[in-house]
Design a protein around this nucleic acid. Structure first.
Length: 421
DNA sequence: TCTGGGGTCCTAGGACCC
DNA sequence: TCTGGGGTCCTAGGACCC
């Protein structure tokens, strides 16, 4: 009966060193004899393209003090024989989907939280697959045997505690964090181990003499609310293991925004080149928007300059659209309004504030050939789905300097949440 | 010789309305 | 010449997540 002691049983499944594990499994299947997981190795961006950071690391690489997000040349200084392999996002998406398909057998309520994490509502499933810990081991071992990589499974009675439990000792482990275990298992941890407590928040909390999750849990809630506003209340609740948010199965989740951005191989100093990059980004963003059967009401452009400073400009549209050319026209205007003329390292395009594409009321002021433009876009989309993104491209890309479409996962998009609420 | 790319949510300040 | 106040919308920026 212990499985029904609590109102809910939630599991959090987290792939250990996801990108690196997946790459290792793939390479072994391809016939490689070397297992990347067993040597100091990282999945990293290309240094030549100025994307040289560590995206994922093996356990032996971790032993050298190499961290995710670190620049590659620094990582090499820590470990000269470090092996770096490029990222293959399509492969990772396939692995993620395979994981999802397997876990789906154990509950109808699964929330994909990122490419390598998901929440499973196991409430009421005990009669099919046994007690939570038993089932968690079964799921974990099946993933290892059938898919070839390891995961951690955290079990709690809400998403927050399940996620914290999943972060306990790795790899290939099952942990629980039930209410009566919170003070013993979670409170001694440093406060920055709590979900949503990043560098800035850690600094602020330390100034209040809060160093552990337990100290945060036992701080006056009003004081936190004064110092950190509503966010103070959120993390106070988390520190006390309080979280009522439901596991939301994909169908109910709505994308709030779609964006693509890219770091350019060289600093851009002229409008013509910037426009080409922006067009390439807009093509993928608009394709994804249409694939989601949505229109957007807000368009925004982000610039990162060579000093790594970011700024952005956004605009509310007169009427919603999913037409590539309309989005692009706004993108260009926004860019020209906000660019300060410095060297550009990185550009981004994002659309937000969605509505369904079914019943768009064309405004009187809209261009009259909307239907034709929509038809053109969907014809191009069809060709791209059928023959690949390179099958149709704008004339400006013929010189091959930039890809005609930059970024985006396309048809496999699923909502990703950064907040569990 | 140099820091990615995909997201969500919150807040502050200004404009504008009543 | 006194100088309101609540509410909403829009935009920019920052914090956090993976």
């Amino acid at each position: 009966m212990s499985g029904s002691k609590y109102v809910r049983t939630i599991m959090h499944i987290d792939v250990n060193s996801a990108f690196l594990s997946w790459q290792a499994v793939y390479n072994l299947q391809k016939g490689d004899t070397l297992d990347l997981r067993e040597i100091p190795s990282v999945v990293g961006g290309s240094q030549a393209d100025r994307r040289g950071i560590v995206l994922a690391k093996s356990m032996p690489a971790k032993a050298y003090g190499i961290q995710t997000g670190e620049v590659l040349w620094q990582a090499r200084q820590k470990c000269p024989k470090l092996v770096s392999v490029p990222a293959n996002y399509q492969l990772y998406m396939k692995c993620s989907n395979a994981l999802y398909e397997l876990v789906k057998e154990y509950s109808p309520k699964i929330q994909r939280f990122s490419v390598d994490e998901m929440f499973v509502d196991y409430t009421g499933m005990e009669r099919h697959f046994g007690e939570p810990v038993e089932a968690a081991h079964m799921i974990k071992d099946r993933i290892k045997q059938e898919l070839g990589f390891t995961v951690n499974v955290g079990i709690g009675c809400n998403k927050l505690t399940a996620k914290v439990a999943g972060d306990f000792k790795k790899p290939d482990m099952v942990h629980t964090l039930y209410p009566q275990e919170i003070s013993q298992k979670m409170w001694p941890l440093p406060v920055e181990d709590l979900f949503m407590v990043g560098r800035q928040t850690k600094k602020k909390l330390n100034l209040l003499n809060i160093y552990t999750i337990g100290q945060l849990a036992n701080t006056d809630r009003k004081l936190l609310n004064d110092k950190l506003k509503s966010f103070g209340t959120v993390i106070w609740c988390y520190a006390n293991g309080i979280d009522e948010s439901p596991v939301q199965s994909g169908y109910f989740l709505q994308m709030k925004g779609i964006g693509n951005s890219t770091t350019i191989r060289f600093d851009v100093t002229d409008t013509y080149t910037a426009r080409k990059v922006l067009l390439s980004l807009t093509e993928s963003v608009a394709l994804r928007l249409r694939a989601a059967h949505s229109c957007c009401r807000v368009v925004s452009v982000e610039i990162r300059n060579s000093d790594l400073e970011n700024y952005s400009h956004q605009r509310k549209l007169f009427s919603p659209t999913s037409i590539t050319n309309e989005i692009y026209r706004n993108v260009v205007e926004l860019f020209e309004e906000c660019w300060k003329g410095e060297k550009i390292r990185h550009l981004g395009v994002r659309v937000t504030d969605f509505c369904s594409d079914e019943f768009i009321q064309p405004s009187f002021f809209d261009e009259q050939d909307r239907d034709k433009k929509n038809a053109l876009d969907s014809a191009i989309d069809d060709i791209r789905y059928k023959y690949g993104n390179g099958a149709v491209m704008r004339g400006v890309f013929l010189d091959g300097e930039f890809s005609p479409m930059t970024g985006g996962a396309g048809a496999e998009d699923y909502p990703v949440m950064s907040s569990i609420l």
